[in-house]
Design a protein around this nucleic acid. Structure first.
Lengths: 291, 291
DNA sequence: CACAATTACGAGGGTCGTAAAAATG
DNA sequence: CATTTTTACGACCCTCGTAATTGTG
């Protein structure tokens, strides 16, 4: 019977060109390789090497065998990888969200309800956003619009209202409300992974210069330490309190408000029943963050 | 390291549904299978079976693993088969001929010149006859026409003249020559595997009823024993002598004469040099069979 | 209690490494 | 004569089978 270890040794000899080299590479002795080669030739019943010289070389049979051996080895490795990946995916709930705020609520909730599951989340937003759910790249999708599809369940999460956050000394600090147009051309601090909000900023404040920070904690420090304006929202305000000595001014544009929904495939309804129930509680208490 | 034997055992368990069954099928003990399963789960790092009951059953991971294991096993078997087949083909010279007579000369000659090679021959004739050589389905091709192609070598073999063979008492026995038209409507004895000649008979004597015999020896006996007309040729007459008490009358039609050529790819020229030399000798002594 | 899978332990086969022999230029 | 492969032999690992144990209905 041909075994994988034999094929690995065969391929190694082919790759190194010499048995000594292959032996070193595999941390094996030359005799071991020599025996394996003879064994392979015995099993197949065909000579794989030219032994006329003191340097073994593959013959045509051997070259074919090596080529096919690579395929067998690759298939074998693929088996391990794919079974592992499949098992992992069956232990993982992946959430794809159009904005960061919903994840702050949804991910901890999932961790609580599915303690044995790994929760993985991804921030993403594009035109065919619903396909993420359909093509199975996630089990939960957080959208900024209500979804009415036959095979998809859609539940209201909450509405997030964007605010301008400035130090009390800032010229805009006294305003009761602002518009994106007031901000265009400013230099502002911004979180890098904003999903949906990125599109909003790009559209309504195209001239604004953003200093982008990908670490959320670091951004908080930066905001505290600098006089530059930044954004906050009904959600972040609930989270971090008002201790950063900043004035938050609501942004009056419609685009500064987003209502998020959480969607999943109908076939997962049973699995997400408890989750759906908790979402109802959450959506009943809007505009504040809960631990 | 996963080895093939483990995958074979895994697949056997999947096929039989139970370890006991698989053990019997593989002529192994249950503990051996049990251990292998545990080993596989250890290596992959993933559970493959549901062990809640006293009856093991594959879980989703296991089903995927089995599916992939089948692929690995199949690839492994394909390796053995293909290398064997490749080696065999490298030890075989296959000849494709448009008629039987040239093979009687060429095959023994090849056996003599290539004593380590297996000579395989096939009778075939069709419109794209040259493609047989081009598509690598044979190394030697015997054609009824001269070939003038850049990458093909073509050597004259000999000309075969068809004769009508009848008992002395037959009405046609006294003729100095006959035409196919004289034969149409007769009942005749014929060898089954005639290649090119089949087309000739079908075209020139469509009404003739043929009693076909696939065993060449048996056909000879039949001819000797019966009064039915049959065909002979310059080649068969040289082979079997004139001891069958039959009269051979040449068939005057052009179609009753064929000149055969032996072709091979130019890249095989070196290999067939000695063979080509012997063909020259043969073509210099036409119309008789040599041993 | 019957049936199936798992653990325990000893036997055998196979692969490995070291060392010596053979082959080749 | 040097380099490389092959053979010889002993050690160890690993798989296997038998028998006892566990688990399930």
């Amino acid at each position: 019977m041909i075994e994988i270890y034999m094929l690995i040794q065969l391929v190694a000899i082919a790759d190194c060109g010499t048995m000594s080299g292959a032996a070193e590479k595999l941390h094996l002795s030359q005799p071991a390789l020599s025996r394996t080669v003879n064994k392979l030739e015995d099993i197949i019943g065909v000579k794989l090497f030219d032994r006329s010289k003191n340097k073994v070389g593959l013959n045509d049979n051997g070259r074919l065998a090596v080529e096919l051996a690579r395929k067998v080895i690759a298939e074998n490795e693929e088996l391990i990888e794919r079974v592992r990946a499949f098992d992992m995916s069956s232990r993982t709930i992946s959430v794809c969200s159009c904005a960061p705020a919903p994840l702050w609520t949804v991910v901890p909730l999932l961790s609580e309800l599915f303690p044995d599951m790994k929760i993985s989340s991804e921030m993403k937003y594009h035109d065919d956003f619903l396909t993420e759910l359909e093509k199975d790249s996630c089990q939960l999708l957080i959208t900024p619009f209500e979804v009415n599809e036959a095979d998809i369940v859609c539940r209201l999460l909450f509405t997030e209202q964007l605010y301008l956050s400035v130090p009390p000394a800032h010229p805009l600090a006294g305003y009761a409300e602002v518009h994106f147009s007031d901000l265009d051309g400013e230099t502002m601090l911004l979180f890098s992974d904003l999903g949906l909000w990125h599109d909003v900023h790009r559209k309504y404040t195209p001239e604004t210069r953003y200093i982008v920070q990908s670490e959320y904690e670091a951004l908080g420090e930066l905001i505290k330490a600098s006089a530059l304006p930044s954004f906050s929202s009904s959600i972040t305000m609930g989270m971090q309190g008002q201790d950063n000595n900043r004035v938050n001014i609501p942004i009056a544009d419609e685009a500064a408000k987003a209502t998020f929904y959480c969607c999943w495939r109908k076939e997962d309804s049973k699995r997400f029943r408890a989750f759906a129930k908790r979402l109802e509680e959450i959506s009943a208490v809007p505009l504040t963050y809960r631990n």
